[in-house]
Nucleic acid binder design. Structure first.
Lengths: 249, 249
DNA sequence: ATACTTAGTGTCAATTTGACACTAAGATAT
DNA sequence: ATATCTTAGTGTCAAATTGACACTAAGTAT
């Protein structure tokens, strides 16, 4: 996007990605810091004429994280007229965040398609800032810097969606390393839900899903009793993801 | 839309609505029949520069159904490149479905935001066809006519979404008349889910949601034992809708 | 009167859930 | 070395929920 070929882009349509990671018992989000100003933005992009919407979302993420094969899911499309803010865009030009020749493109009214991604924190070595940003960093969901336009609202909507999906789908495959302990998985759940769960009941429930395989090895170099390490049975995991966990009716 | 002011419309963005109704124990969908050709389409429209996306979706529905205050929910945005089909659009011009001067506008690549609506079948007197359609009719979800482009896929996605939401949210307020019997509500559930439920267990579960108020009146002029009529306690209904029914964690 | 249909209530065993006790393994303090 | 603390892992039990049915009530059809 360093060379912005606006004529090949689909007008009015933008993509915003909420990239979730999990580190030190905190839910993190990948954010871009704009140049010369204390304002942050979700990674995102625009849609090229010949490229599927979903592919562009994947591309945008690959550019920032260096990862392909990311779990990515569309969750909502944001189309309020307040998303277009000429004063804000002029400010971005003034602060040299965006090149003046881009002003016209940026000052369109955009409909933004929101995607959320789940990635393994440690796999993202050095998040790569883009042309309008000077840094790309993980931020805690509970301690967010000032965000551009409605990006905070988009982020919160993504978080809400994740919480809701947790009731019907397993999670962890894309967020945790290949091997993990049950207490680590529980901590992930607690972090997303924002509440504590009972150790024993959590284990019982998650084991009943029948998506975990015990490796019979234990975490080494850790304080206290070493926990057993598990892996996901990917086939069963995906089956459960498809079918859903709560029957309901 | 009879006079299509393309310059005031947001390019690349379209809206498609899947309007569900319930009649004679069948789940129905409102479809438009294109002029001069056996091809049907979802009602929809485009987005005016100064109007919110959600408002435009409501507008599109109000025009077709005459109803305002409809339950309407965005469920997915469709952005495949295959959605743009020049041959198809040329055919539409040939068959005089669309005016030749509209060709350029229609032949854009569109990203389409999908909404589904739940409406009370009997409240929609005469669905109103639009400029490109000669009829607007309720069709059974299980017996659909040939649909334009990916509209069948959009419709099926909406139906799937509805099924899934049923596990976490109450339904009926916008689909059934103000007063209804429990067997009628059950029939609605069975129709959406596509499977039979046990009468007694259904009643027990739905009563446990505590969203129904018994009117102590019975349906009149009906064969066999007259069922009691209920209404939704709208406050509790909306609360349950917000909070979700299945706790999960 | 008898059989059939749909409405509404109740029962009971099996399963799932929530709350909590207990043991195991390793770290730390005395 | 031993007592104490922390985290891991297993087990128990009562309460609540669920699934499968039996039974009664009310109205229709013969």
């Amino acid at each position: 996007m360093t060379t912005l070929q606006t004529q090949s882009l689909l007008p009015s349509v933008a993509i915003d990605c909420v990239v979730f990671g999990f580190h030190e018992n905190e839910l993190k989000v990948l954010l871009l810091k704009l140049k010369n100003i204390d304002l942050w933005a979700l990674p995102g992009g625009f849609v090229n004429q010949g490229v599927d919407l979903d592919s562009e979302a994947l591309n945008a993420l690959e550019i920032r994280t260096g990862l392909d094969n990311i779990f990515l899911k569309q969750f909502h499309t944001f189309g309020s007229i307040e998303r277009n803010d000429t004063d804000h865009n002029r400010m971005l030009v003034d602060k040299k965040v965006i090149d003046p020749e881009w002003f016209e493109w940026f000052d369109q009214r955009f409909i933004s398609v929101g995607y959320y991604a789940l990635v393994e924190y440690s796999q993202v070595r050095e998040p790569i800032p883009g042309p309008i940003s000077e840094a790309c960093e993980w931020c805690s969901v509970n301690d967010l810097p000032p965000l551009m336009l409605d990006h905070r609202h988009i982020l919160e909507t993504a978080h809400m969606t994740l919480k809701t999906e947790l009731n019907n789908q397993p999670i962890g495959l894309n967020l945790l390393p290949k091997r993990f302990s049950i207490p680590e998985l529980q901590s992930l759940y607690e972090t997303i839900l924002g509440k504590k769960l009972d150790r024993r009941n959590f284990r019982r429930k998650v084991m009943s899903f029948d998506i975990l395989v015990c490796t019979n090895e234990r975490r080494t170099g850790v304080a206290h009793k070493a926990p057993l390490l598990y892996e996901f049975d990917e086939e069963k995991y995906h089956a459960a993801h498809q079918a859903g966990l709560s029957s309901g009716w």
